[in-house]
């Protein structure tokens, strides 16, 4: 059995139709329950009916277009209002600019400053506050002087001696600070020698070169406490500024460390300049992001007669060694060199 497609379709179309029971028609007719007359599809539909389900894409598009038009119109209205405001402000500004030179020539401000009164009141309040603080400072200064006098009387020394004592203490602290910077400079140079003439990147890197981290705190810095050892060391235990981390050791005038209290600076060549940062801040120049010390060239002072210049041999010694030609003696025989 190998029928063709046409034969199959023809046989299918000629299929027999099963006949229903004759009683089925009566049952179906009896079960007819027509909906109420006049009920529309929109009322019967579960979601707006057939009309809505058919037309909702068009309705949605129309609603979207209307919404876009409304938004566009409202934005245009706002833009027009803003343009009017800008024009009004521009006109007002032009009037003020035109009126300002005339007021300056008269020395009187004809244009009212909206914030002038408030600013004046603020300045007055600031002045009042500063006056109060000055009065408090004066009272503190007087109290300080009185306490100094009382302390000196209690110790049995004069006020001048107490002042000298304080100065001596400050000087000792300054010398100790210089010593600290010397040690820091030496440690940095040692580190650089071992690391291709490059200075250390931070203080912690010099832990092998520095005997103790206590040298990182200036004696005059009462706000910081030196670390007991490198294990407990943090940047809160440092008074000095490290201005050339990972810098080159081959720039001798570059400032490596600086004490912000005394103004001492340690240069890349290891030398420490005392208080230069405070006494001559103009000698420090930023060049390519590096702080360099450039001292002005001093004019050479003529040496006093008979004085020995540094690096120059005594004239008598020079004569002795034949470095200075002796005055010409026509008849004298040439001096023989000592045998």
């Amino acid at each position: 059995m190998n029928p063709s497609e046409e034969q199959i379709e023809k046989t299918l179309r000629q299929a027999l139709r099963p006949r229903p029971n004759p009683g089925l028609r009566r049952q179906l007719v009896d079960q007819i329950q027509l909906p109420a007359a006049g009920q529309t599809g929109a009322q019967a539909g579960s979601f707006g009916g057939a009309w809505f389900s058919r037309w909702w894409p068009t309705l949605a598009t129309c609603a979207l277009a209307v919404a876009a038009v409304v938004v566009y119109a409202s934005q245009q209205s706002e833009i027009n209002q803003l343009r009017q405001v800008i024009a009004a402000l521009q006109q007002e500004a032009d009037v003020r600019v035109a009126a300002a030179p005339a007021a300056e020539t008269r020395g009187v401000s004809t244009v009212p400053m909206p914030d002038g009164a408030a600013e004046l009141a603020s300045l007055r309040a600031t002045a009042q506050q500063l006056s109060t603080e000055i009065a408090v400072l004066e009272a503190l200064r007087t109290e300080n002087a009185r306490l100094k006098t009382q302390t000196a009387a209690a110790l049995g020394v004069s006020a001048e001696a107490l002042e000298q004592l304080a100065n001596a203490k400050e000087k000792a602290q300054s010398i100790a600070c210089i010593n600290n910077l010397k040690q820091l400079g030496l440690a940095a140079r040692m580190w650089a020698t071992d690391n291709g003439d490059v200075l250390p990147p931070n203080f912690t890197s010099m832990s092998n070169e520095l005997f103790t981290p206590k040298v990182l705190v200036c004696p005059a810095d009462t706000a910081r406490q030196p670390a007991a050892d490198w294990g407990s060391f943090t940047m809160a235990n440092v008074s000095y500024e490290f201005l050339a981390p990972s810098g080159s050791e081959t720039e001798p005038q570059r400032v490596v460390f600086r004490c912000p209290i005394h103004g001492h600076v340690c240069l890349a060549d290891g030398s420490v300049q005392s208080s230069l940062a405070k006494t001559h801040p103009e000698w420090f120049i930023q060049r390519d992001g590096k702080l360099m010390l450039e001292q002005p060239q001093m004019p050479a002072q003529p040496a006093p007669t008979g004085a020995v210049q540094p690096g120059q041999m005594d004239p008598e010694m020079m004569k002795r060694y034949g470095l200075v030609p002796a005055p010409a003696q026509p008849d004298a025989a040439p001096t023989e060199p000592p045998q």
């Binding site: 329950q33 599809g41 019967a44 539909g45 009916g49 058919r54």
Partner: peptide
């Protein structure tokens, strides 16, 4: 039985 209630939705 389903046809009669669905009549109004027949478009």
């Amino acid at each position: 039985a389903r046809v009669w209630p669905a009549l109004p939705r027949f478009a």
